[in-house]
Simulated scan of single mutants.
Amino acid sequence: MSQPPFQPPPQPPQPPQPSQQPQQSQQPPNAYNPYAQPGPPQPPGFGAPPVPGQPPMQAGQPLMQSGQPHMPGPAPMYAAPSYQAPPFGQQPVRSGNPVGAVLLGFLVSFIVALLFSVLIVVIAKDLTFATSTTLYLAHALLNGAIVGALIGSVGHHSNGARIGGAIVATLGAFFGWANFLPIYIVKEDGGMALKSLLESEPFFPAKAWWIDEASGGVDWTSPLGLVIAAAAAWGIAYLVGNKRRHV
């Protein structure tokens, strides 16, 4: 008798397999504070306490006002006023030393006047009126020029120093000529002759400087020498002082 072919028994239905992809975990809305408990109190000066349901504020995080979005970016910086250098080639103006300029001019004027007096004493026997007048005016100009150059170099553009220099140069021109007479008398006749002359006529050097021996009147070249000395001192001090001012 023939048997039917073997057939396997039907398999029972299998339950549906779970998905192989893991489900993404979702955080509850209050993950940082699941029980909605108030946070610990913070010391004063560190901002307001955290609001329940919100993560705590980290250090250095700026405060946010309600209704205003946070704008990231660096904190505003206030630029310091920039230093403005002086224009190219322009130097600060220096006032100089007027007092020191006048004192230095006085010292140099005294030395120049003394040298002129000694020169006149040495050549007094060979002097004529024209020669003595020329030497006197040349000395006045030289004395004023030297004093003016010193005033302009040390005192710069100070008007007070210029006035002082003009006075010093005028005195140097006067005493350079007037002092040669006492020195000449001491050289020729001795100190006792000068003493007796000063006792009888104390201002004879000034009178000899002012009076013309030939005519007996006023020698106008004498005050002219004073004007030349003062003008030379003022003018050269002005020129030298302004030149140093613009250098």
Rank of each mutant, 00 (worst) to 15 (best):
P4D: 10
P13Q: 02
P18N: 06
S25G: 14
A31M: 08
P34W: 07
Q37Y: 03
P38E: 03
P44K: 00
A48I: 02
G53A: 00
Q54S: 12
M57R: 08
A59D: 03
L63W: 09
Q65H: 10
S66M: 07
G67Q: 07
Q68G: 12
P69K: 13
M77W: 08
A79D: 13
A80R: 15
P81N: 10
P86E: 01
Q90C: 10
P98Q: 01
G100A: 09
G100M: 02
A101G: 10
L104V: 12
F106E: 06
L107Q: 06
I111A: 13
V112P: 00
V122T: 08
K125Y: 04
K125L: 13
D126N: 14
T133P: 10
Y136S: 07
L137V: 04
H139I: 01
L142S: 05
G148D: 10
G148M: 06
A149I: 08
A149H: 05
I151K: 04
A161V: 10
R162I: 09
R162A: 12
G164I: 01
G165F: 06
F174C: 09
A178T: 01
F180D: 04
K187I: 01
K195F: 15
E199I: 11
F203P: 02
K207M: 04
A208Q: 15
I211E: 13
G216R: 02
D219L: 04
G225V: 03
G235W: 06
L239G: 14
V240T: 05
V240H: 02
N242M: 12
K243S: 15
R244N: 10
R245D: 09
H246D: 10
H246R: 15
